[in-house]
Design a protein around this nucleic acid. Structure first.
Lengths: 164, 164
DNA sequence: GTACTTGCAAATTATTTGCCTGCCC
DNA sequence: GGGCAGGCAAATAATTTGCAAGTAC
């Protein structure tokens, strides 16, 4: 009840609205991907996005998903992430500065924020003669053993993701 | 003049010594790769390692380079890095905790150390209920404009590397 | 109507692997 | 001497692209 009149109809997802604002031509496929993304609370890879999209409408190909996430990244709507699983994962770009902790045993991804990192990063860049343009930080951790010991104490396996 | 008698001959590279210590069978190819790595001050990718190796002895294939860096990584001699160029880059594992700043205009990589990041990372992990197993931090920066403005203010291009 | 999108399949890129031969310990 | 290592080429895996046909504005 608080959106501008022109886009007040139900069924317009948050990301679709952002696409429209940026003047993208909205096709059925793009609308679908936009909706899937808007409803995702996690960090899906392309394969996963494709799976969720096909489930709603089979008339989409994975090549289109690849093309669309790339487009949305160029438009600043998505950010590409690398959690070390060999596939790119996507994150909405306007969720504010945050980082990720990956559970090395389960692959789950937990978000957190902490302004100190940026400050220190900025200071270090300056000391080296640079203006900080961007920075990435990922933590890999193991849940404290409060129950039993985990089975595979290895390097981060294919990250899955938290469901919320 | 301070190395153990058994490996005192010139021509034994630092990394070859580490391989021997870990009981690896030393072939001509592995010795060559070890030497190339020992002489590298930067963060070469496999292709680059292969180029440097073939230049010294053409009887090596890129598959062997792939197999060898993987082996050395498993043995804890090398660390695989991802600077966002789509290829894995390698770093000697025993150089102590350090991070990288990538110049977004030139792709050059600069190393730096700062203990605060680890401390904060550890603290955050603990707050989230995790033991910190590993962490990655990369800064992307642009040299302060003290001469002229850079040409392409874009996202990090294929990282090259500092030559020293 | 026309330029932009899509689907499909083929192309690319980075990396791994099968297999048979060769060489290190 | 026997098993691990290496070369070569084919196999994977993720992602991109050419092209003909469809569609948004």
């Amino acid at each position: 009840m608080d959106t501008p009149a022109s886009a007040d109809r139900e069924g317009i997802s948050r990301i679709e609205r952002m696409c429209i604002e940026r003047g993208l031509k909205m096709t059925g496929q793009r609308r679908l991907i936009a909706r899937v993304l808007s409803e995702s609370e996690d960090h899906p890879d392309v394969e996963e996005l494709y799976r969720r999209a096909v489930a709603q409408d089979s008339r989409i190909s994975i090549a289109t998903v690849y093309r669309t996430v790339r487009l949305l990244e160029e438009k600043g709507i998505l950010e590409r992430r690398d959690f070390g699983g060999g596939r790119a994962r996507y994150d909405q770009a306007d969720r504010g500065q945050h980082y990720h902790l990956i559970d090395v045993d389960t692959g789950k991804v937990i978000e957190f924020a902490d302004p100190r990192h940026r400050e220190i990063a900025q200071e270090i860049a300056a000391r080296l003669g640079f203006e900080l343009v961007d920075h990435r930080l990922e933590l890999f951790g193991r849940r404290f053993p409060e129950g039993q010991a985990p089975a595979t104490p290895r390097r981060p396996g294919k990250p899955q993701d938290d469901e919320a």
